[in-house]
């Protein structure tokens, strides 16, 4: 085995699968990981409840419903009810997971989330399914690309956007065992799996998935895979990118973000969300106060989504690997120009 066949230190430390050189990666929807994690959380703690608003199969609560029928509640198309009722249930130590599409919960239920979950400090967990434009043909009404913004702005909310289905399972378990109001965001479409059972996961701890010091690509959610592929290709152009899986948008790992800026000198943020007020904006807020460097934002630019195939939409809205590469080149150029 030649030395280039060995993945870098970061990838080995994180026990990643080899994504390099156009490797075929197995794909599964992140929502599957949520479904598996929820069943396991129910096994570990009988106080874990699942409550669904007429979307058991889509949100992958179906498995929990079968495994723990006594811990499952169905309330119909009533997302505000989901949050408020879960607040009441949590008052006696229950751990309610509530699920719908991200567009409707927390989209429709925002004020209930703010008051009942956050201000009131209750242990309710929101599972926001079908986030992002990768929902596809359903169109703009169903494509939540503002949800990170409206959740991260609320004090005390935990906001977690895992990178693949394996990590989504871990995040579901970790949130189930961490007290406090939380939002877990995941997607409909299948997406590449880059992590393994051995990959660590800790809420609030960003992960370096690839070493590099020319530019740091800070990504979350299903686009982390695109970021890794872009970094692999950029290496052949002589630009060595660090890739940070920034799965916890809140509380964000400020020391890791600042270190990436200090050590790389330029940042690209990548998220399937409006660039305004999302994960990348939080990165910019942190760096503006700690260590300002050139930043390029990859995400949706103040537009609504539309019907189309998932990959077609990811490309159209400038979140594909080529768009990430272009952003990294721009960031690098700005850094060099100093």
């Amino acid at each position: 085995m030649s030395s280039t066949d060995v993945m870098d230190r970061a990838a080995r430390e994180m026990h990643l699968l080899d994504y390099r050189n156009g490797a075929e990666l197995k794909q599964l929807p992140t929502r599957n990981g949520f479904g598996e994690g929820l069943i396991e959380a129910g096994n570990r703690n009988e106080n874990v409840l699942a409550i669904c608003a007429d979307l058991a199969e889509s949100t992958r609560m179906e498995g929990f419903k079968k495994a723990h029928p006594a811990q499952y509640l169905e309330i119909g198309v009533a997302e505000q009810m989901l949050v408020a009722m879960a607040g009441g249930l949590a008052s006696t130590g229950k751990v309610p997971w509530i699920a719908s599409y991200a567009m409707f919960n927390p989209g429709r239920s925002w004020e209930q989330v703010r008051t009942i979950m956050a201000l009131n400090e209750t242990n309710v967990k929101i599972a926001g399914a079908h986030a992002g434009v990768s929902v596809g043909p359903d169109g703009a009404t169903h494509q939540a690309i503002e949800d990170i913004a409206i959740m991260r702005v609320i004090p005390h909310m935990m906001v977690v956007v895992p990178c693949d289905s394996v990590q989504t399972k871990k995040a579901t378990l970790a949130l189930s065992e961490t007290f406090g109001p939380a939002y877990l965001r995941f997607a409909r479409e299948k997406s590449p799996i880059v992590t393994t059972e051995e990959t660590p996961f800790e809420i609030g701890k960003a992960q370096t998935f690839r070493d590099g010091d020319d530019v740091a690509i800070v990504a979350c959610g299903i686009l982390v895979a695109n970021a890794l592929i872009a970094a692999d290709e950029l290496a052949r152009e002589g630009i060595n990118c660090r890739v940070v899986n920034n799965h916890t948008v809140k509380p964000m790992d400020a020391p890791a973000i600042t270190a990436a800026a200090r050590e790389c000198g330029a940042i690209v943020t990548v998220e399937e969300h409006q660039v305004h007020a999302g994960m990348g904006s939080r990165v910019a807020e942190i760096l503006a106060e700690s260590h300002p460097v050139p930043i390029e934002f990859v995400g949706v630019r103040d537009q609504f989504g539309q019907s189309g195939e998932p990959t077609e939409l990811i490309e159209h809205y400038g979140m594909g690997t080529e768009a990430i590469k272009a952003a990294a080149r721009r960031a690098f150029k700005r850094k060099v120009a100093g």
Binding site: P137, D138, G139, A140, T141, H142, Q306, S307, G308, E309, E312, L313, H316
Partner: peptide, 13 residues
């Protein structure tokens, strides 16, 4: 219907 660029969005717009 439901295709990229169509006026016939998956849900009415």
């Amino acid at each position: 219907l439901r295709k990229f660029g169509s006026r016939l969005q998956g849900h009415p717009e």
